[in-house]
């Protein structure tokens, strides 16, 4: 794999092939964000407890995706690739903020156009309750459960987190148990 530094980006001269490549990358980037934007937003929300932090983290994730996209060779699925970047950025973000368990995120946009106002309110409350409970989980359990809730299988979660599938199973069992307890306490 070619090593790339930011100095290269400054010093290298653009040639037509690079420009075409850039356009293709920009197209891929837009498509990936359009398809996975909401999932990335939810993952970002699991690392923060304020809207401004969440947006900052989402921006960092998007930048990291943009920087890594050119090196993506399809060794794993696009989803695995994106979620790896999202969780990595989440960890880096937490390290900087040294976040501890805090109050749940204040406002989240919960939508279901088919439901009526009362049902919408109930749905919003239950979703916020779940988000708050997930935010209170230790990071390693939080990562595993959010990936499971996004629909990833054990193999994909193992790939994202760099652990074995049996380890994923153990984490998920513990995460679900803790989540259940937290949700019961909230009722």
């Amino acid at each position: 794999m070619r090593s790339f530094t930011a100095t290269d980006a400054v010093l290298s001269r653009p040639d037509p092939a690079d420009i075409l490549n850039k356009e293709a990358l920009a197209g891929d980037f837009d498509r990936l964000l359009a398809v996975n934007g909401p999932a990335l937003g939810r993952l970002a929300a699991s690392y923060t407890n304020t809207l401004s932090d969440r947006d900052d983290l989402l921006q960092e994730i998007a930048i990291a995706i943009w920087q890594a996209l050119g090196r993506f060779r399809g060794e794993c699925s696009e989803r695995t690739f994106l979620f790896r970047i999202a969780h990595n950025r989440g960890i880096a973000f937490l390290a900087r903020k040294r976040a501890h368990v805090q109050e749940p995120i204040g406002e989240v946009d919960v939508r279901d156009p088919a439901s009526n106002a009362e049902a919408e309110l109930v749905q919003e409350q239950t979703a916020q309750r779940l988000t708050a409970a997930i935010y209170r989980l230790p990071v390693q359990y939080r990562q595993a459960i959010t990936l499971l809730l996004e629909g990833l299988g054990y193999g994909e979660i193992a790939e994202v987190l760099g652990i074995t599938e049996s380890n994923v199973g153990a984490r998920l069992t513990r995460a679900r148990q803790m989540l259940r307890e937290l949700l019961e306490k909230q009722i």
């Binding site: 980037f29 837009d30 964000l33 934007g37 909401p38 999932a39 990335l40 937003g41 939810r42 970002a44 929300a45 969440r54 947006d55 989402l58 921006q59 998007a62 930048i63 943009w66 989240v108 946009d109 919960v110 939508r111 279901d112 749905q123 239950t126 979703a127 779940l130 988000t131 997930i134 959010t146 499971l148 809730l149 996004e150 629909g151 989540l179």
Partner: peptide
């Protein structure tokens, strides 16, 4: 049930591309 509740949360700032 958790999955449905979790995925009903929608959070996407609109100007991500410009920020990047």
């Amino acid at each position: 049930t958790w999955r449905r509740e979790w995925q009903s949360v929608s959070v996407t700032p609109p100007d991500l591309r410009k920020r990047v």
